[in-house]
Design a protein around this nucleic acid. Structure first.
Lengths: 251, 251
DNA sequence: CGCGGCGTTGAACACGGTCAATTCTTGTGG
DNA sequence: CCACAAGAATTGACCGTGTTCAACGCCGCG
């Protein structure tokens, strides 16, 4: 995927390789800070259900997802579980600069992260204006994502929300989504996330979610190969159903 | 309205006074930058329906709300209007560092903002590490707010969402909400926002919203003095209904 | 083989969206 | 000061949708 070797300086621990935002951050650092930064990192592999940071816990580590899906979640006193947001490869988690994490960080699939002591990470950032600027930009990305999610949850119908989710997930996977729309190409989507989790992410129940999936299939937008293996057969109708226009942003 | 003394370094233009985040930002600047920053600002008063930044427009100005409520909104091609988030006094709007605003910024009530050329603002920030750090923190606040909002919209029932909204609004007004909960004090809330707007904010219709308001009143959580003048008669039950636990953060 | 997790399906009912009609308020002009 | 009109909030009735509870099928694993 990303074979761009700009220099010999990259992070790779036990087969887990830095990419995306973390790599760019690293590239932005001056050489001496980069050398200092690299040994701070360690890799952690996770499996569905693993809790990386507990709700309310003071997170002393921050991390970048290398592979798989994490979620920010919260369970209310009536035992109802909400998933506030997905954390996808290249995304950061754990709150830098700003106190304890207000949410639980849990794994929804298998995967791996690279983590680093928060204090040391911040200290190095503080010494590079360029890197800290880059970091600010990635926070702005998170803000965008959160707001986009607010949009999605604003639509009343579950099918619409599911359609939006599928579009967002495709965006992560395929860069040039517009051309796919034009050419009506079929996109394969592997979702390693359980139905219950998707349901909680969309603020609905597994049952309604199932019906929504099959409604999308009836209307010809997708094809359900296996529950974890969706094929987007017609992106156009999917976009129609979602109610949104087809916008592109990078992850 | 604000009776602060004009002595010393503060921004005050045509009666609109800097406060909250903007004031703190200014305080963090070294004196010479502060002197440079102050004349850049100008005040704008707004009335309900005013559009400060159009959707998709490249915003060349950023601003801080001094008084009143703005909203980030978006209308989809099916003419359905979504309000993504409230912008309350002390909040910033307009996207610094990062391209065009993806949303329309419109006024929901009367009020005033202080605005500044984006480029110049960024340029000054770039020369003060402390100020830029402070700015980053305020973005983190925005992120929190957006995610809290995702939580709120995740609940399926309108009453719950309305209850959450009222709690959030009270938090902005009253600092020590816990003690109010203990003592069961009555809190007055003036909402200068039209029902339609609140409805779109909560992802529902004016009709359902009205029913939710009156359901809250029937259950003894609030008292509706006038549509724009709510009294929280029992914060405890309001919190119960919202499904959330009572958390406090600063605005 | 049977158990348990997970996805799906069915049926009953509650909730919210929609359309229409009614009140309440506000502002305007006579 | 009153009448009237326009905008906003509310209420009612109807119906689509989602939630809930229950049952069923599928599959992997002990």
């Amino acid at each position: 995927m990303n074979e761009h070797s700009k220099s010999g300086k990259r992070i790779e621990i036990e087969g887990v390789v830095a990419q995306g935002k973390l790599q760019r951050l690293l590239d932005a650092l001056p050489p001496e800070l980069r050398t200092e930064m690299i040994p701070l990192w360690q890799s952690i592999r996770f499996a569905p259900g693993d809790v990386l940071i507990e709700d309310g816990e003071v997170a002393d580590r921050i991390g970048f997802v290398a592979d798989g899906f994490l979620a920010m979640s919260k369970t209310l006193q009536d035992r109802h579980r909400h998933i506030i947001g997905l954390i996808t490869p290249s995304d950061m988690f754990g709150r830098a600069f700003n106190g304890p994490s207000g949410y639980r960080i849990e794994a929804l699939s298998d995967g791996a992260v690279l983590t680093c002591d928060r204090q040391k990470f911040e200290a190095i950032l503080a010494r590079s204006h360029a890197a800290e600027r880059l970091f600010l930009l990635s926070i702005l990305d998170e803000l965008d994502a959160a707001r986009e999610w607010v949009m999605v949850l604003g639509s009343s119908k579950v099918v619409e929300r599911l359609a939006s989710l599928l579009i967002i997930l495709s965006r992560h996977k395929y860069r040039t989504l517009e051309s796919c729309a034009r050419d009506n190409i079929r996109l394969g989507l592997h979702i390693h996330i359980k139905r219950v989790d998707i349901a909680h992410l969309l603020g609905t129940s597994p049952e309604s979610l199932s019906r929504a999936f099959h409604q999308l299939e009836r209307e010809g937008a997708i094809r359900i190969v296996t529950p974890y293996d969706i094929e987007i057969s017609n992106l156009g109708t999917l976009v129609d159903i979602s109610g949104n226009s087809l916008e592109m942003r990078d992850a």
